[in-house]
């Protein structure tokens, strides 16, 4: 088999494993962060410092009795969590995790696929994420689940618009839709965050809404809808829904880092690599490590917000999306255009 193809397959499997591992420990981190913010101890019984807690949770999920409601649509009830998990894992294929590495005398890139429509692909996958929730919620044949599904769809469609408009401003200033090129443009100069502060803010808020994370976790809001779309789910099907949310959080943190914070690049990287005398492979490893640090910061940020802010009311959520974020995003496009015109980038 061709070495390039073999490397891609290894990379895909590694991506899959890392996504699952990060998602697994995100559940642990979430409980630890919430405990820390509420002055509790959090899970500390399974293993040293409670580090085996995710494994214990997984075993618990698998051992639970699986209940499929008699009146529900069985096929769709099973397809729902599968769709949620699949769409969550699909977006990872386009994230550039690092630069080039040299193996067996050949050069490989730490990215599964570099499409020239990368940004749009990510956007498309995000918009498909709602199907798992909608199918699962509807097939449960439960009013609470249905309410959760309906809320999820309306929320996602509303926030997709603002997110797309924020991305348009980013594409205007970078001039490319390939994720690798966007990351590489930020290697020497400033990160996109400096050029697109408003776009970043809009994108971040929309990411919260698209992930159904607090303060926008209306689809599952346990205090009014029991559990929202996953009320009727039990055992590992519930686990898949919850797990998909954490994978989505990991991938969107990686997307935010790539779009606005330089991806695997870091300030003074050329000087640092030269001073340490790193080879290409080692420099890439350092860059990938730094990217993961940035990603973990954003995962922590998502949790920080969740345990700080109370949930929005549904009408407040809609008002914020349609009446604040969309006009702001359009304004951002206009300002970006004017600034680019003044700098002579467009004529």
């Amino acid at each position: 088999m061709e070495a390039g193809l073999l490397f891609k397959i290894i990379l895909v499997v590694a991506m899959f494993a890392v996504s699952l591992l990060v998602a697994m420990y995100s559940t642990f981190l979430e409980r630890k962060v919430s405990a820390w913010m509420q002055n509790r101890k959090g899970p500390n019984r399974a293993g040293p410092l409670g580090l085996l807690q995710p494994l214990a949770d997984g075993v618990k999920m698998f051992m639970k009795e699986e209940i499929i409601p008699n009146v529900s649509n069985k096929a769709l009830f099973i397809i729902g969590p599968c769709v949620a998990m699949t769409t969550a894992l699909m977006a990872g294929a386009l994230i550039p995790w690092g630069g080039d590495i040299e193996l067996w005398g050949r050069t490989f890139t730490l990215q599964v696929a570099d499409l020239n429509i990368g940004v749009l692909y990510i956007f498309g996958i995000t918009s498909l994420g709602v199907y798992g929730i909608m199918i699962g919620g509807w097939a449960s044949n439960n009013k609470y689940s249905l309410m959760g599904a309906i809320r999820a769809s309306a929320q996602m469609i509303s926030y997709e618009i603002a997110m797309g408009l924020a991305i348009i401003a980013l594409i205007m200033s970078t001039g490319t839709m390939s994720l690798k090129e966007i990351a590489d443009q930020q290697d020497a100069g400033l990160a996109n965050f400096v050029y697109q502060p408003l776009g970043f803010l809009i994108f971040l808020i929309c990411a919260f809404a698209e992930l159904n994370r607090a303060p926008f976790d209306m689809p599952e809001s346990e205090s009014e809808l029991i559990g929202g779309y996953h009320t009727e789910y039990s055992s590992m099907k519930l686990g898949l829904f919850l797990f998909a949310e954490y994978i989505n959080m990991f991938i969107s943190s990686a997307v935010i880092v790539t779009f606005y914070f330089g991806g695997y690049h870091f300030p003074f990287q050329n000087e640092i690599n030269e001073a340490l005398g790193l080879s290409t492979t080692m420099a890439t490893a350092l860059g990938t490590g730094i990217m993961f640090l940035k990603v973990f910061f954003f995962i922590f940020f998502f949790m920080w917000i969740r345990w700080t802010l109370p949930r929005f009311r549904y009408d407040q959520l809609m008002r914020l999306g349609w009446k604040s974020l969309i006009p702001l995003a359009i304004l951002n496009i206009l300002v970006t255009g004017v600034v680019m015109w003044m700098n002579g980038k467009i004529n």
Partner: peptide, 20 residues
């Protein structure tokens, strides 16, 4: 990609929304 974003991602979600 635009076909998927617009039709599968937005219009069909709205259809489902109304039907539900």
């Amino acid at each position: 990609v635009v076909h998927i974003v617009v039709y599968a991602g937005a219009i069909m979600v709205l259809f489902l929304y109304v039907l539900m």
